[in-house]
């Protein structure tokens, strides 16, 4: 009997393995992403208390059998009323946008160059792009402190060359934050661009040239539109995490650079105001869901366009 049962389980697995394979990660996401999100959402509509945990409960069971639900929207109103939050959000978006643009300007030619090489050179160059991931992100940001401080390598070299007589202030500025973000997120721009450009048929450029397009025109009319999915993917992969970035503005920007990640952290750790911190996180998430949905739409459109329908 046990034998027969084993058989049936095996059959069941065999028939439903596809469902299982997709269901498992979904369950994982549900448990460890969606559930915490709802907890954060719940805290964001609570009231701040000096207690443990430092916020009021969503459901109050004290009134007999029926729980009463209290939703407190003050935290969101507070974010709107205090100008600091709005400015910080906008500044975060600005820094993320400019960093994304810088990554694109640096990463696009790099990816294009890598695709144009072949064989060992190509894999070596790709390896160099991925290589930084082998070291801790935090460590690499700390390394930038060593480069950027008044006594850092860059200022030492500038002083030694006589280009300046006193150290230039590089650390704790927006400049340092840009350097950190562009440096850290460049691979996320290059890799999707590379993946997209690798599929590009070089004969298309030749065809454009053959039909009378000068190199710049050929780039604008053929290469650029065809690499647009890669550009969008790369930009979103840089923009989304850069907006909420905490480590880089904290370590390189210090108190001089307003970024939402830092604000959230100080709200949570220094002020112990969990509900406001949660509200900050929820608004950030909503801000970032918009570009994410955009990305998804572009992705699904490009995958729909891929299969070569043989319509006679």
């Amino acid at each position: 009997m046990g034998h027969a049962d084993k058989h049936r389980i095996g059959d069941l697995l065999q028939r439903n393995w596809k469902t299982l394979v997709t269901a498992l990660p979904f369950i994982w996401l549900l448990l460890f992403f969606l559930a915490p999100f709802f907890i954060v959402l719940k805290i964001s509509v609570a009231e701040s208390l000096i207690a443990s945990p430092p916020f009021s409960a969503l459901l109050d069971w004290s009134d007999g059998g029926f729980p009463s639900m209290t939703i407190n929207t003050d935290n969101y109103a507070y974010l709107w009323e205090d100008e600091l939050y709005l400015r910080t959000y906008l500044n975060s978006l600005k820094i993320a946008a400019i960093s994304t643009l810088l990554c694109l300007l640096i990463g696009y030619p790099m990816a294009y160059g890598i695709v144009r090489t072949s064989g060992t050179t190509r894999y070596l160059l790709l390896l160099l792009v991925i290589l930084p991931f082998w070291t801790s992100f935090l460590l690499r940001v700390y390394a930038w402190i060593g480069l950027l401080t008044d006594q850092g390598t860059i200022n030492d070299v500038l002083l030694w060359l006589g280009l300046t007589d006193k150290p230039i202030r590089l650390m704790y500025s927006e400049f340092a934050v840009y350097v950190g973000i562009v440096y850290s997120y460049l691979p996320f721009m290059i890799l999707p661009l590379y993946a997209n450009m690798e599929k590009l048929d070089l004969a298309l450029n030749e065809a454009a040239g053959d039909l009378g397009a000068k190199p710049l025109t050929a780039f604008l009319t053929v290469t650029l539109p065809l690499t647009l999915p890669g550009i969008i993917a790369g930009c979103l992969l840089v923009f989304i995490p850069a907006t909420g970035e905490f480590v880089i503005p904290d370590l390189l920007g210090g108190g001089n650079v307003l970024m939402i990640g830092r604000l959230l952290s100080s709200e949570f750790n220094a002020n112990h105001d969990w509900p406001v911190a949660s509200a900050v996180a929820v608004v950030l998430l909503i801000l970032l869901v918009i570009p994410m949905m955009l990305y998804h739409r572009v992705q699904s459109r490009s995958t729909n366009a891929q299969p070569s329908a043989e319509t006679a």
Binding site: A203, L204, E206, D210, L211, P225, L226
Partner: peptide, 27 residues
């Protein structure tokens, strides 16, 4: 190539995938 009175039909055809038939020909 872009200044030669010569046009080529490529082995892979090299049609522009982001353009329809009319725009490919009009390019």
């Amino acid at each position: 190539p872009y200044e030669r009175p010569v046009n080529m039909m490529f082995q892979s055809y090299a049609l522009f995938p982001h353009m329809n038939v009319f725009n490919n020909i009009a390019y």
